[in-house]
């Protein structure tokens, strides 16, 4: 099961990187989304995949009775998803703002902050 998931992660990273190489910012953003989900899966696999019960301790017990699933990676993934969600939503808003203000989402044409030498000379 782990190896299958690892393959999935590999494909996701490859697709993500391919998309991120595009000059189109929207493609870049989609690539980023794929990559961030791949990163979450990495943590998931790192926590080992076990078909175990939720890590809840029954009433009256001090410790769980049987082996339980590792809850920590899931907690971390949840945090990472929340943060990733916020960052990606922000980036999308930024791309939209760019499109409205600059009229393009082609990063090759975005030379305002670093003007090319010729037009940059005063």
């Amino acid at each position: 099961m782990e190896s299958a998931l690892v393959l999935v992660i590999g494909v996701m990273v490859a697709a993500g990187v391919y998309l991120m190489l595009a000059a189109n910012l929207l493609c870049y953003l989609f690539g980023l989304i794929l990559l961030s989900n791949a990163a979450n899966l990495v943590i998931f696999v790192a926590g080992r995949l076990t078909r175990a019960v939720p890590p809840l301790i029954p009433k009256g017990q001090e410790a769980p009775l049987e082996p339980v699933a590792n809850a920590l990676p899931q907690a971390m993934i949840l945090t990472a998803i929340v943060i990733g969600f916020g960052l990606l939503a922000f980036t999308l808003a930024l791309v939209v703002a760019c499109y409205r203000e600059l009229g393009t989402i082609d990063s090759d044409h975005m030379r305002l902050a670093e003007p090319p030498p010729k037009s940059g000379e005063h």
Partner: peptide
């Protein structure tokens, strides 16, 4: 609040 702030801007 945060999600709606973003949504209202976009």
């Amino acid at each position: 609040g945060a999600v709606l702030a973003l949504f209202f801007t976009i």
